[in-house]
């Protein structure tokens, strides 16, 4: 690698870390609420913490947990978690051309994708700033791990998380990312249509599928000529 591009990478990485901090703060509380709920469901302290540290995907963790909390088995919980994660497949495909190196190196780089880092690293022209993405993920991983430790250990003292309104954190987190994405009228229309598709499918499909199906509306990008 040449000197100037190293410097650019370093700058992007540092900007990413800075941009990731507010999401990390919110992630801390999200992960803490996961720790509390996991303990209430019957996870040991170690299990709650290890889940956050090696799965590191909020929606999949919450989806799998909610399935087993209501008495579901491992296959159902895995399916729910994987369906929630299916959006990372779409994000990975989008990111792929921006990642250099061999397949193994790209696979490792792909692990850094979380919703906020992916959205912030998007340059808006179909390419991604990978160092910004890596940087944005770092503070979020640290606080995600810390949050689960606090939630798992001190969760009993908190009591009912529903009463505390912690379920309002997750949507606001995604909403803040969404607002930065509504750049032009086509992205606004796709957002509205994607939301409607997801809501329409809620009663007739397993959790996770409505979200994946919403990504299908992006196929209008095929027919709509950019002007």
């Amino acid at each position: 690698m040449a000197g100037p591009s190293d410097e650019d990478a370093r700058q992007a990485f540092l900007r990413g870390i800075k941009a990731g901090v507010p999401f990390g703060v919110v992630g801390f509380f999200l992960s803490a609420s996961f720790g509390v709920l996991a303990r209430q469901a019957g996870f040991s302290v170690a299990q709650a913490i290890v889940t956050a540290m090696i799965v590191f995907a909020g929606s999949a963790q919450f989806a799998a947990l909610s399935v087993i909390t209501v008495g579901g088995g491992i296959p159902a919980a895995l399916t729910a978690g994987s369906l929630m994660n299916a959006r990372f497949l779409a994000m990975g495909i989008a990111l792929a051309p921006s990642l250099p190196g061999g397949p193994m190196k790209r696979a490792v780089q792909g692990q850094a994708v979380v919703d906020s880092s992916w959205a912030l690293a998007s340059r808006g022209d179909g390419t991604f700033d990978r160092w910004l993405l890596f940087g944005t993920t770092v503070p979020q991983y640290v606080t995600w791990a810390l949050g689960s430790v606090v939630g798992a250990i001190f969760g009993d003292a908190l009591g009912d998380t529903h009463r505390l309104g912690l379920d309002a954190i997750y949507p606001v987190f995604f909403l803040s990312l969404l607002i930065t994405e509504l750049r032009d009228s086509s992205s606004r229309w796709v957002a509205v249509c994607g939301g409607l598709v997801a809501l329409a499918l809620v009663p007739i499909s397993p959790p996770g599928v409505p979200i994946l199906a919403a990504s299908a509306v992006t196929l209008v990008g095929l027919v709509r000529r950019s002007r």
């Binding site: 994000m91 959205a119 509504l182 992205s187 919403a214």
Partner: peptide, 10 residues
């Protein structure tokens, strides 16, 4: 480019 608004809204 349209993937993020669709997935995030959903």
């Amino acid at each position: 480019v349209l993937m993020a608004p669709a997935l995030l809204t959903a």
